[in-house]
Design a protein around this nucleic acid. Structure first.
Lengths: 192, 192
DNA sequence: CAAAAAAGAATGAACATTCATTTTTAGTTG
DNA sequence: CAACTAAAAATGAATGTTCATTCTTTTTTG
């Protein structure tokens, strides 16, 4: 009797191919046949791992988002002082965007278009809770401005996405110096 | 003999339909037949006004971008003091995003995906020159941090796009109070 | 050797674009 | 100013292609 033996390598190859092709062409301009080809797999095989094209995209999105948040909160504990904790998390986010550029670009595209189901989008948000808690703590301690988390995010985290996209287009270079400037700008806009 | 009599109304209807449908479904998930239907026009008629689907998108992008920049720099002259000029331009951008939400969302989607030709994207950037000049002046006067324009943009202008998208998704409300907070955050991150 | 996994070819729907006609337009003529 | 006309504008239907998904067969697995 045979057991489940679907290969995790094939699944991963499919996910990587999806990320890369969606980054370069957009979701709807990416045929399943191309994803299959890039993953060295038959088109029919995709349907052993995913229900359909939309399900493939949703699953890729959620898994990449999980990888992102898990990366971001490594080494962070809720008892870290606010300023240190923020700097730590901010730098991990910047690291992720630099080192896992493909994944980060993919997330940026999903977050800015209607290609992702609303429910999958919601699911991707849950994991940011530790950052929201940190901000709340910072506001209670009078360190951070009493702003909506959306404003805090817009001015301290989101700019990194913009800079990454610009770097990807060859217009800008994120290096040690510009990262330091970016962090200072972020901190100045949200701290009291 | 008849002269050119292609109706500007039809062209505008096509542009509006494209903006609305692309906002809701994305470019590649929007069939020409739907654009035609929404514009009360036959599919074939689209090809009297635009070469093909990609040309339609490029033209819509460029025209909306022009409307945006022309709106943004109304009332600004290059001899306005830096701080006043920045506040003026920043508020016009915020106004545009609030009052012409459809157009602004459309631009945001185009700026964050590979659906637009690189050349059209370039063409859309040209018109920001007055803002770049203002920033240069501000840096020479020691009012603004000596940062790359990309950093200045990331921390003072781009956050508005994020907030608009969030407002569109019902998660956040841009009103007089939050706009004031947003402007303060922007100014704090770029000024010395 | 059975059952799952994988493959390649087949199917059918969706859609961008073109084609063949009809309708509208604005000069022109009586 | 009304009837006429030729060209542009507009149309609905046709065309051919692309592509998601399924079907049938082959391969791999334990």
């Amino acid at each position: 009797m045979a057991k489940l033996q679907k290969s995790i390598e094939k699944r991963n190859a499919l996910i990587q191919a999806t990320i890369s092709l969606v980054n370069n062409n957009g979701f709807h301009a990416t045929p399943m046949s191309k994803i299959a080809k890039m993953a060295n797999v038959s088109p029919a095989t995709i349907y052993l791992y995913f229900e359909n094209k939309q399900d493939l995209l949703n699953k890729v999105y959620i898994e990449v988002k999980q990888a992102f948040t898990s990366y971001v909160f490594t080494n962070y504990t809720p008892d870290t002082p606010v300023a240190d904790g923020f700097k730590l998390i901010w730098n991990r986010i910047a690291d992720f965007k630099l080192k896992e550029m493909e994944e980060a670009l993919f997330l940026a595209q999903c977050d800015n278009t209607p290609i992702i189901d609303e429910t999958s989008r919601q699911e991707g948000l849950i994991h940011l809770q530790p950052l929201l808690d940190l901000w709340k703590r910072g506001q209670e301690e009078g360190i951070l401005k009493p702003m909506s988390p959306y404003l805090l995010y817009a001015y301290s985290i989101n700019p990194l996405s913009f800079l990454m996209v610009m770097q990807n287009r060859g217009a800008f270079k994120l290096n040690e110096e510009t990262l330091e400037e970016a962090f200072q700008a972020a901190w100045n806009s949200i701290s009291i």
